[in-house]
């Protein structure tokens, strides 16, 4: 994964002349500000110099979403979440608080969990964005999803996709978590129906199932 990241950061020219590197100079703060759980891995350089001004009208935006390249024309102010939901009909990530509190829009950017409501679509260029839809491709549920079903870790289900994504990301950094780690590591997502009890058990169970799968050479996702 690290190799892939560096490749993305290497500064290939985009159509609009803005390099990945130029962009990240301006966007670093916002990107790391949206890290949810797990240990923050320093990725973006601290801001040095100013980013090129974009907008206010629509600009061409190229996103990598679930392994596909998607080209859009968007105002620079459009969030990654709105771009995915309104333009690409990827509605698994939910818009709830719209200001990085509730985690319902959790998705992965280069394997790290981010709140999609607090990342601009233009910031996401050059990164691999992975949404919950990716994890049930072909109709096969990710073990985390199966565990949510088994432990009834969902009621209305509106927070669920965000929680599933946060849990998947959490296990990447905590493959064998304790209950205490679960309680702390998943504090960035909120549920209104009160499904935390089931989620706690789902995460622990999924961790077991996934490490068993990994041992068998069947790493999912």
């Amino acid at each position: 994964m690290k190799q892939k990241k560096e490749k993305l950061l290497s500064g290939k020219k985009e159509a609009d002349g803005l390099t990945r590197r130029d962009f990240l100079k301006g966007a670093g703060v916002a990107v790391s500000g949206s890290i949810l759980v797990g240990e923050a891995q320093a990725e973006a350089n601290p801001a040095e110099g100013s980013a090129q001004v974009q907008g206010p009208g629509e600009v061409p935006v190229t996103l990598r979403v679930n392994g596909e390249t998607r080209r859009l024309n968007l105002e620079p102010r459009v969030t990654l979440l709105d771009a995915l939901r309104d333009r690409l009909d990827l509605t698994g990530a939910k818009k709830v608080c719209d200001r990085a509190t509730c985690g319902a829009c959790t998705m992965l950017m280069d394997d790290r969990p981010v709140y999609g409501c607090t990342v601009l679509a233009i910031e996401a260029q050059g990164h691999e964005v992975t949404t919950i839809e990716h994890f049930s491709k072909g109709g096969k549920l990710h073990p985390m999803m199966s565990a949510f079903v088994e432990h009834d870790a969902q009621q209305c289900g509106f927070c669920t996709p965000g929680f599933v994504m946060a849990c998947i990301a959490f296990l990447k950094t905590h493959p064998n978590p304790t209950m205490e780690e679960v309680e702390k590591g998943l504090g960035g997502n909120l549920c209104r129906c009160g499904t935390y009890w089931g989620i706690r058990h789902a995460v622990l169970d999924a961790a077991k199932a996934m490490s068993a799968e990994a041992e068998g050479g069947l790493i999912h996702g």
């Binding site: 939901r85 309104d86 009909d89 509605t91 698994g92 990530a93 939910k94 818009k95 949404t131 919950i132 839809e133 994890f135 049930s136 549920l141 990710h142 985390m144 999803m145 199966s146 949510f148 079903v149 088994e150 009834d152 870790a153 969902q154 289900g157 509106f158 669920t160 996709p161 599933v164």
Partner: peptide
């Protein structure tokens, strides 16, 4: 018994009213 719409919800494929996108739809 596990809820029958559990897989649709946990996979993010369940479509809520907020998720409905129709051709030409306005906001």
């Amino acid at each position: 018994i596990s809820r029958i719409d559990g897989p649709a919800k946990s996979s993010g494929r369940a479509k809520y009213s907020l998720d409905i996108n129709l051709p030409g739809m306005l906001f």
